[in-house]
Design a protein around this nucleic acid. Structure first.
Lengths: 341, 341
DNA sequence: ACGCGATTTTGCAACGATGTAAATCCTAGC
DNA sequence: GCTAGGATTTACATCGTTGCAAAATCGCGT
């Protein structure tokens, strides 16, 4: 209509004038206040339709102290797991009438601390936060005065809600699956030395537990360090473990990107998967089902995590004052070609 | 220093009282109004720091009519190309001090129409819109009264800015690349029958142009229809063309997901890539470099598209009133194993 | 018709910031 | 010491909506 930027200048005032009622009545109608005579409601509604009135959300936010926006802070969208998570969170939020503002932390510790206190927190009613670098030492930084839901198991016991999967059990199941296929020399790639509470550490614990349960000795040479869980890292870890001359008959990628990187390297070297080396990942991203060979993985119940996180957050925003909760979602082993018998 | 006052009720009023100046002076300091005595600025700044004041963005939005949020509407984040695009857009926006609200349209026509008029437009200063289903017939729906930047070539000639790559030329280059490797029976998968302005149609045009330029006859049997450009579709298209008994020595996936799906099917059938059939995709998503074999593709200058889109949008938001622009970004053929000699 | 409790509707004052235009402060120049 | 004129600062209205509590209207029994 008008390119100069004069947006919807129709206010409640205009609607009220047209409908012949007070501004407050218009407000009552749009907010579904119960005690309104049907005739009045109809009049107002008609005026709204005729004028094409849209509520000014900034004004409403100012008045109510809420914006209807929730924040989602994650490492980066180019990591498929987080893209899929964001997709699920946005859908869950939309179904509940709120929208999502995404902030990327680039898996940088300072950046992760920054989003917690950023100016943008003024714009959001609450935050769903998936940290990759913060550890128990940063627990204080998470003591914020707005609703917060933390994803993942990095930091426990604080005053906030928590949604996570059971990384230890899931990793144990993944390892057990490999063992069930007769593998004994299982390399795990993407480990983080010195970490105790992160997904990496927990998954390695699960790996060790599975070995122990099956009487397989733990060989430190089979644990390969790797920083960011990108495909490139997985490819690199695999190269290193193969070059080290360690005997390997299976690889457990601590996430799918690592496992896909491993497949890449194995393919490049002409190693047959799963005949020579079986591979399993973790996260069950869409890629996994279309890799060549298709990649076995652990499905973390992404949908459930997203839904729970949004529900918990909205409950806090609505003022719920129950003890902080820790929700643990179900996982599932998804066997595919890369670990076939 | 008071680290906990993020959502605190500290207003300019409080800061003004503490600094012994008027509210407006605080506002001036915060907004870098030039004529402020250094001493005054210091006093105010100190009060701000001491009280941990954060500006209430809703109030500012109400007053200024701007929110500092831009919208990004795209099909869905689980499509890697769009996830990577969103990543780039968010980074570009952040560098310019605005944040991004993402809306997913699920590649549904009605949903795409809805985002244009959604209540959320009240919350954003402008919109970057990547439609997948809207066509020339919907041009009127795009005549909106807020700043809009459209991505992709589906709809031309309207009163809005446009950022796109040259799909025809890029597809021609992709096809030429296959021809240069000696391929003659090139199947193209993911075509959309009846479409004239979409990426599918334009890319098929480029494909045909390349054939013509090399004196290769066009065989309609080599054009495989496929709806949504997911991996599953690519796998399915490939199955169909192979089962049809048509001779094929190369496959051009109209995007990378399709091509990855093709690799999947070829692998499952034991067809060697690139020896028996070469494959090239389009978009150059991160996956492409890690597929087995690595997938050749067309890099569309994603970063440049995102940056241009954000810049154009912010210029409009700032009130720029120049003729609407159409920006065409550069592309590049990225050869990898799947089309090696 | 009248009175009364219950249902509807309304006026007013915020919410926290900024634009405008006017008030006040300074400093140089005489 | 006084004043013009620019540099600083300020008061006030206003952005569009909602909470509060009071005002107006309604329905119904008598």
């Amino acid at each position: 209509m008008n390119g100069s930027g004069v947006r919807g200048t129709v206010t409640m005032h205009d609607v009220a004038a047209r409908a012949g009622v007070s501004i407050k009545t218009v407000s009552n109608v749009v907010n579904d206040y119960p005690h309104i005579r049907p005739a009045t409601r109809a009049k107002v509604q008609q005026a709204i339709d005729e004028l094409g009135y849209r509520m000014n959300l900034s004004a409403r936010s100012l008045r109510q102290g809420r914006t209807g926006i929730i924040g989602l802070a994650l490492p980066e969208l180019s990591l498929p797991y987080f893209a899929e998570l964001a997709d699920s969170v946005i859908r869950a939020a939309e179904a509940r009438g709120v929208v999502v503002l995404i902030e990327q932390t680039s898996a940088d510790r300072q950046h992760e601390l920054d989003v917690l206190t950023s100016d943008r927190r003024q714009l959001t009613d609450g935050l769903i936060f998936s940290p990759l670098e913060l550890g128990p030492d940063d627990a204080d930084a998470l003591k914020v005065d707005y609703p917060l839901v933390v994803l993942g198991e990095r930091i426990f016991g604080g005053d906030w809600d928590h949604v996570t999967m059971n990384n230890v059990d899931a990793a144990r199941a993944a390892t057990q699956h490999l063992i069930d296929q007769g593998r004994r020399r299982i390399a795990v790639i993407g480990a983080h030395a010195g970490e105790t509470m992160g997904s990496a550490a927990l998954r390695v614990l699960g790996y060790q537990a599975a070995l122990a349960a099956n009487g397989i000795p733990f060989d430190p040479d089979l644990v390969v360090e790797g920083g960011l869980w990108h495909r490139a890292t997985g490819a690199d870890c695999t190269t290193r473990v193969l070059d080290a001359g360690v005997k390997v008959d299976a690889i457990f990628g601590l996430n799918d990107a690592l496992a896909l990187g491993a497949l890449h390297t194995l393919h490049a070297r002409g190693v047959s998967v799963p005949d020579d080396i079986a591979v399993i990942g973790f996260d069950d991203i869409e890629d996994a089902a279309y890799a060549s060979p298709t990649l076995s993985s652990i499905s973390p119940g992404r949908e459930e995590i997203a839904t729970m996180a949004v529900d918990l957050l909205l409950a806090r925003i609505a003022g719920e004052d129950t003890p902080y909760r820790r929700v643990i979602t179900d996982f599932e082993v998804v066997p595919r070609e890369s670990t076939a018998a």
